[in-house]
Amino acid sequence: MTMVDDAEEPVESIEDAADESADEPETDGGVRAYTVRLELVDEPGELLRALAPIADNGGNLLSIHHERGNITPRGHIPVEVDLECPPDRFDGIVDALRDAGVNVIQAGAEHYGEEVSVVLVGQLVETDLSDTLSRIEDEVDAVVIDLSLAAPEGTEGVASARIRLAIDSGRADAALGAIRSIGSDKELTVVEPLLGGETA
């Protein structure tokens, strides 16, 4: 989070100023993001049936990662759902999913709890960007949430890509280490975020 520059804002009272701690997690008006990992039977309508309890219980769907190509050992399809809701409603959503017969594998902010952005620089196209991304998802155990590409020299030249990743809480250092080694394999420059301290 950015630093709070106290000088910029008129301070109304000492109590107010004391409450404004830069260390407080940002709650966006009381809503938090969660990831729920489900296993669905490969039947028509299953996905829709699984999503209904989320909306019905005050959750707001952010994204759905539907891994059709992957089948779990039990022959089910893993689905990852990102949603946001007030923290006190999250348990209700998970309960409602289970009541509806949906198999909830993992729920809560613990899984994929962190987001990090990295910038990759180099011959991104020539080194097969989509392979780079799949390697990151496989080897880092991360989900690519967002990708921005800038190739001012055209696809033949040096390009930059900003990749936003969702990773497990507490695994950022390991994930960045793995991205570093993929980068060095492919001779790409990896610009990592600075974690730690009060600047990450």
């Binding site: 620089v121 921005s148 800038a150 001012p152 040096v158 930059s160």
Partner: peptide
């Protein structure tokens, strides 16, 4: 090895 495009992408974020 840091090109202007990398700074542009960082700024978008």
């Amino acid at each position: 090895n840091v090109p202007g495009s990398a700074l542009d992408l960082a700024a978008e974020d």
